[in-house]
């Protein structure tokens, strides 16, 4: 026999290397992206079907769990001067606006005690107080073609919501938590709060609300890294 590699050997080796390829991928994502892409349209359609404008039942004040709300940030915690803070509302609206905290506080205050659910698996019953996003959008008047709402935060975080979820009566731009003004860790001066979306959808330190008629390639900080976009509860 010559030194050249026999056909059988070659086949064995190629078999081994493809097996190791498979094993390697076991440790990492193993088609999880493809599985997500295949099933997400069905999951999203189901969630949209379950979504109504009916308020989710709320909890009583004494059921609040102050210690259970954990702090998650992807970068640093921005310190925002409340006096200089402005909220921009723009995009597909008839009346682009710029609101100060004082402006926001003159609008009707809505308080709710709801369950905040994090994608990680924990949940906390929290009281949030703020302005209904519905109310802000009523003032800004979305154009008929507006379908999505983008939120930009002072720390560079970004999110996008469907307009139906954004106008849910319990979707608030909150400036109070558990009866007190929001702390910087929890998103002061203004953050999203809602019982109908997972925690990563509820941006903190929101400085800009932009309505669009379509989803842009970037849909959200965590979504662009693999979490599902709709994130409905």
């Amino acid at each position: 026999m010559s030194k050249s590699i026999s056909r059988r050997q070659l086949l064995q080796w190629s078999g081994l290397s493809s097996a190791s390829l498979l094993l390697n991928s076991c440790g990492s994502n193993l088609w999880s992206k493809e599985v997500g892409q295949a099933i997400e349209p069905l999951n999203q359609a189901t969630q949209a079907l379950l979504l109504t404008q009916k308020p989710v039942p709320e909890y009583s004040i004494d059921q609040i769990e102050p210690d259970k709300l954990l702090i998650n940030t992807f970068a640093q915690t921005p310190q925002i001067d409340p006096a200089k803070y402005r909220l921009q509302i723009e995009g597909e609206v008839n009346h682009p606006m710029q609101l100060s905290l004082g402006d926001l506080q003159t609008l009707p205050l809505t308080s709710m005690v709801i369950q905040h659910v994090c994608v990680e698996g924990w949940a906390a019953i929290v009281q949030w107080g703020g302005v209904r996003l519905q109310e802000l959008l009523r003032l800004a008047q979305p154009k008929p073609n507006a379908r999505y709402v983008y939120f930009k935060s002072a720390d560079g975080y970004y999110e996008s919501w469907d307009l139906v979820s954004a106008t849910h009566p319990q979707t608030l731009m909150a400036y109070q938590k558990n009866g007190q003004s929001l702390s910087a860790d929890n998103g002061a001066p203004l953050r999203l709060a809602s019982p109908i979306k997972l925690g990563y959808k509820q941006s903190k330190w929101v400085t800009q609300i932009m309505l669009t008629n379509q989803l842009m390639p970037k849909t959200g900080y965590w979504e662009d890294r693999g979490y599902e976009w709709f994130g409905g509860l």
């Binding site: 994502n29 193993l30 999880s32 992206k33 990680e120 890294r225 693999g226």
Partner: peptide, 10 residues
């Protein structure tokens, strides 16, 4: 299975 939380959820 899934590599990380998002993959596991998928």
């Amino acid at each position: 299975l899934g590599g990380w939380l998002a993959g596991g959820r998928n």
